[in-house]
Design a protein around this nucleic acid. Sequence first.
DNA 1: GCCTAACCGAGACGGTACGTCCGGTCTTTTT
DNA 2: AAAAAGACCGGACGTACCGTCTCGGTTAGGC
Lengths: 224, 224, 224, 224
Amino acid sequence: MAAAMIAQDLTQHTVVPSHELPAKLGRKRDLNRDSEILAAALEVLAETGYNGMTIDMVAARAKAGKATIYRRWPSKAELVIDAVACMKRQEGVADSLPDTGNLRGDLIAMIKPHSIDDGQRKFQIMAGVLAMIGQAPELAEAANAAIVQPRATANRMLMQRAKDRGEIAADCDIDTLSLVTPSMIAHRILLLQKPVDRDFLISLIDGVLLPALGIPAPKPTPGP
Amino acid sequence: MAAAMIAQDLTQHTVVPSHELPAKLGRKRDLNRDSEILAAALEVLAETGYNGMTIDMVAARAKAGKATIYRRWPSKAELVIDAVACMKRQEGVADSLPDTGNLRGDLIAMIKPHSIDDGQRKFQIMAGVLAMIGQAPELAEAANAAIVQPRATANRMLMQRAKDRGEIAADCDIDTLSLVTPSMIAHRILLLQKPVDRDFLISLIDGVLLPALGIPAPKPTPGP
Amino acid sequence: MAAAMIAQDLTQHTVVPSHELPAKLGRKRDLNRDSEILAAALEVLAETGYNGMTIDMVAARAKAGKATIYRRWPSKAELVIDAVACMKRQEGVADSLPDTGNLRGDLIAMIKPHSIDDGQRKFQIMAGVLAMIGQAPELAEAANAAIVQPRATANRMLMQRAKDRGEIAADCDIDTLSLVTPSMIAHRILLLQKPVDRDFLISLIDGVLLPALGIPAPKPTPGP
Amino acid sequence: MAAAMIAQDLTQHTVVPSHELPAKLGRKRDLNRDSEILAAALEVLAETGYNGMTIDMVAARAKAGKATIYRRWPSKAELVIDAVACMKRQEGVADSLPDTGNLRGDLIAMIKPHSIDDGQRKFQIMAGVLAMIGQAPELAEAANAAIVQPRATANRMLMQRAKDRGEIAADCDIDTLSLVTPSMIAHRILLLQKPVDRDFLISLIDGVLLPALGIPAPKPTPGP
DNA sequence: GCCTAACCGAGACGGTACGTCCGGTCTTTTT
DNA sequence: AAAAAGACCGGACGTACCGTCTCGGTTAGGC
């Protein structure tokens, strides 16, 4: 978390009066290296998993020295935590929610090929990262915020809109239901190792979400 | 999985004619060591996580030599998988399905106090198991069979009984729904790091499963 | 110094009653590795000098792991010290002194091609080793004992014999004179970087040693 | 050697017309830094040896930046060579040859008290210089010129004078003999690590040099 | 009862990654 | 333009762990 927070601090507090700190001397840290190293770490992480990933690999791919990495993060674990957390920042959190007028249309409109591929990659990164959750509990928080929360939030907003317009009952447990899809996706990718294709997502919507919200399933699943 | 299966083989097929195999000579393997080593592995796993766990730690705690461990399991990963599988066997999830006459009663009867008590320990161990998926994808199936499938199977059997007695509709997607609870539990334990307590499980039953199956929630579940 | 001394202890005190030490368990240390590693270290040292030498190079050449080296020597410096000290043991210290009847004949008989080449190699090793004399004073002692003392001792014995038979005066400073040749050789190899050939050694004998001992130079240096 | 020569050039040719060179712009190089850095280098060298010495240490002690050092010397090795050369220049070995009328008096007059006092310091420094010979053979000549040659030249001049006035024979090998003292000193300092005190130098003169030149020892040098 | 082979604890072994440190270069700000 | 400060790349150091192999000693069978 360290470097990212420092970066935030620097970009947010540029107007801090310079007489407070002792007027930093010497060459400035190249802030571009931060993101380049994080990107390289994510690539290696997705390819080899946490244990397979090597600091030298990351350094080589980012064309950086090991010291440059260890100057920013105190250990491999913290680098990975930050890399996962940085995934969250890359994407616009709720980038243009669909609005088709009814909940089923909205949920299905969320299924975009790009979204599927991207999700696949992220969950594979998560698989590699799970190796160290026992040692670094804050990693769990980062992974949740980066991978699961964006999807859950989108689901919750769609369902809240449906509730607002009276499409579903007011006493539905939206918070719990919005986590069903991400949880099932994680299980399918991590343990079943099956692809998260359109059919699977539709079966989730029509077999779990909509029934649980009291909306009857539409027609016997027409083809794409 | 290796040693456990060998152990099963040995105990089950003691009558195999000895002339088939090259007439095992020498001292017999001490079968007690298997369980002692697995227990030691579970302890260390829970305390340090997968990456923090060391074969030497396990050997020291079990007062065994490393060779004694590697004679039984080919790698650290397989040892851990087997340790988790053995844990599940101890507990016997689906050994006695409840039968209260209605689905909600059955599902709630499945919630046993000790599920909550040792939830924290299982969190560590499950995280450890999931850790190796990135390195050894073939172990994902084993982890799934050991951890998720027992609970999913129990759920499916209960729902099938409910369907048989007409309590729920015939076209319900039981296969998908039976995976909802385990998936949500895994997410809660691994990423949210919150305890899987009775309230959470009841909110799953009343907020997701029963509504999705067309059974109205019983009472408005008085909030805290 | 560590490993060599342990080795000496082991070979010398084999008859020590076994109940004194706690009866060493586990695999025995392979004593052959000691000498193989030291030999590899000497090779690398002669080729690249102290700073150029790498523990990985030594390990690779000795087909050993780094841990095997660090189990025996606590640091690169101590390994080099031991390697230099081990040179001394390799050669028979005073392997067959010549006896031609007069001192000049003895001294010249010591000049053998094999001896010259061997000396060249040793002084080159010494050059590589001088890099760390400031940090490890005991290295100086080892280098002196391994490289300079054997030659000085041979010289001193030849001169003592000459003194015993009355060839040279009784009050000659043999101890000092026996060090002249090694010192001049070291200077020639290390600083002048010129070869130590037969002519140079003869000029030392006839231009310094014999005159200082009161023996007149023979004829105007006949050819070889 | 580089910076010292530049410094000499600059101090000698201050009157060179400025239009000959490309009209040096900007701040002038602070020539005081040269000697301050060299002094700092000598201190660190004497304290830690060549390998122990760090450019950062030198920079910190001289309150200089690393770039300021590397602007003047191309490498750590050359800096050390120059530091030693500068030390020799400070002391001015052959600035005033003694002339007592006979060779023994001249040689003994060369023994100055401070040669003994700072012997220990020079030991460390010389060891440091010899250290780099293995890596940069071209520096051997420089080290030889800075350390050994001044003393050898002084010896040769004294002996030549003695030869000129008929004190010693005309066919003495002066070139070889003039190197005996420096070589023996180097051996005593570097390998024996004993102080180069007055007694040792007198034993060289009376036990080696004068006998080799055909001059009988004066008195039987009373033992300690 | 005794031989033989496989077992056992202990730990050395080869290999590989970690996190630190240094040499030599480059960049930023100040003088 | 040179100075101080310090970030940068590359690579060696010494440590720790994995999975294998070897040691002396123990425990079964089969003769």
